[in-house]
Simulated scan of single mutants.
Amino acid sequence: MSGETVLERPEEARIRDELEKLVVHDLHGPFGDEEEEFRERPTDRYILGRLAPEGETIEPDLMDDGADTDGADVGEDEAEPSVLTAASLMPSALGCTVFVDGETAELKVSGRWARYERVDGPEGGGGGAGATGGRVWSRVPDSGVVRLALREGRLGPERMPCDEHVVVRGRARRHDGGWLVSVFLVNTTPRPQPLAARAWLFQARMSVSAVDGGPIFRARPDTFGGGDDIDRAEQRRLAMAYRFHPEFAVGHGVGVTARQAPDNHRWRPFQQDRRRHPIRQRQPHGLGVMAGE
């Protein structure tokens, strides 16, 4: 036998990246290709990145009666009563808040999502895992772009051209010479009685950018409020510690990523630089904000 290694030993970072991709594909989807098919309900298969139809609730349920009750203060012949949880709404929107230049008149909002439709599966098992004829769920990807005019107060709703039940809403107000804007991608599909999974949106994502791709985004202003003097001092210390990591967006029910425009070199968000060059906080940058990544 030769002394050569048969398999190359992968680096820890590569293993971690592959594991992360598997987890995201498993929980967020799509696990297969862009037009995957499977038998199980999509609401059971994917638990992340989904938007419920309008008014969808989690029904109240009883807690597990078989839970350990050792040490409970109950009577000799008295059973511990079950606790009825309250009904709550399922999230039907995702969004983010950004700070843009005061001269900006419009924002471009792009959305991507997928619905799953009930169709006849292919014969011979050609429709993915478990799809061997019969009825299956088929992924139907979609996307759209709208323009959101900025003004004081509520914005929209602006309906996506490809799906009237997917809308963009928001709110804007003037702050420190700029616009503080919250933007949301909303699923307004009414919940049908049969096949309710058709009304859900899966793998939902949203991006916010300038209409012309210009540098309009500013770092969110630091605000120190609430708590006592010790709390506010801690907030100021944190702002100083992270002064080289400006915050361009805050997600609402979702994670956000600020991406640099290709022709803008004034800020490098993903490149480590040990020299720590100072950053002008009020200077707008050419970024695109992605929500749902």
Rank of each mutant, 00 (worst) to 15 (best):
L238I: 06
A239Y: 07
R237F: 07
D229S: 13
P215L: 07
P215D: 08
M240D: 10
R236I: 10
Y242T: 11
I230L: 14
Y242A: 02
G214Y: 00
Q235A: 06
Q235R: 05
A241E: 14
V211D: 12
Y242N: 05
I216S: 07
G226N: 10
P221T: 11
F224N: 06
V211I: 13
M240V: 09
D231Q: 14
F224S: 09
D228G: 15
G225T: 11
G226E: 10
S209H: 02
M240K: 07
D212T: 13
F217I: 10
L238R: 13
D231Y: 14
A233M: 11
G226W: 05
G227T: 06
F224K: 06
P221D: 13
L238V: 08
D231K: 12
D212H: 04
A233E: 12
F217W: 08
Q235H: 09
D231H: 15
P221Q: 13
A239L: 10
F224V: 15
D229Q: 10
R218V: 01
P215M: 03
P221H: 15
D222C: 01
P215I: 02
R236S: 04
V211P: 06
V211T: 15
A210M: 05
A219V: 04
R218N: 09
R237L: 15
Q235D: 09
A233V: 01
F217V: 09
G227S: 09
I216Q: 09
F224R: 07
P215Y: 03
G227E: 04
L238P: 00
L238W: 01
P215V: 02
D228F: 08
A239I: 04
S209G: 11
R220Y: 08
S209R: 09
G226Y: 08
A219Q: 11
G227R: 13
R237M: 14
P215E: 08
Q235T: 00
A210L: 04
D212M: 05
A233G: 13
F217K: 05
G214R: 12
G226R: 10
R237W: 01
Y242P: 01
A239M: 06
R220C: 01
A219W: 01
F217P: 00
D229L: 14
T223Y: 10
P215N: 03
T223N: 08
P221G: 10
M240L: 15
P221K: 15
D222Y: 00
A233W: 08
V211W: 02
G213C: 10
R237C: 08
V211F: 03
R236N: 00
A241M: 11
T223I: 11
D212S: 12
T223G: 04
D212G: 01
P221N: 12
A239G: 13
R237Y: 04
